[in-house]
């Protein structure tokens, strides 16, 4: 099964709707709660990053019997130092983003922790694509 969603830049009123919708779908499919939690925490963090740090983007989710593959792609500013960004507590979140409840610098570490496979393609001035895989063993 394939699902796509659009993410809107800076729209914190609606941010998280795609992750919410994926959560409902995974529940309906009878995926184990622990795997649902891992998938939606990772997806939500990536969705929020696209809203907060980039200019919105798209989400593609593929679910089959053995795995969930989630791709969050944006045409944002890219991440200049990915190793630094992966560190707990590292954040460039703006004042507005902090007001919304983000900027702990825990999003990317949370994504890493909750996924079985993580690939981040990022290029300054071009954008960031985060590919997250959860195996449903």
């Amino acid at each position: 099964m394939h699902y796509t969603f659009d993410i809107e830049r800076g729209n914190f009123a609606d941010a998280g709707q795609a992750s919410s919708s994926v959560k409902r779908t995974l529940k309906q499919l009878g995926v184990a709660p622990a795997n649902i939690r891992r998938a939606v925490v990772a997806l939500f963090e990536a969705e929020i990053n696209a809203v907060a740090h980039a200019y919105g983007g798209t989400i593609d989710v593929d679910i089959d019997g053995s795995k969930i593959v989630m791709v969050v792609a944006d045409q944002g500013p890219g991440i200049p130092d990915l190793d630094a960004a992966m560190q707990e507590g590292w954040s460039t979140a703006s004042a507005k983003v902090r007001e919304m409840g983000y900027g702990a610098g825990m999003g990317l570490p949370n994504i890493k922790k909750n996924t079985d496979d993580l690939k981040i393609d990022t290029k300054v001035g071009v954008g960031t694509t985060v590919t997250m895989t959860i195996y449903l063993a």
Binding site: D14, G16, P33, R37, M100, G101
Partner: peptide, 14 residues
């Protein structure tokens, strides 16, 4: 924190 994101985060965290 009292906004929609408090609710979305709570949803993801069960």
């Amino acid at each position: 924190l009292c906004n929609n994101q408090t609710m979305r985060t709570s949803e993801m965290a069960d």
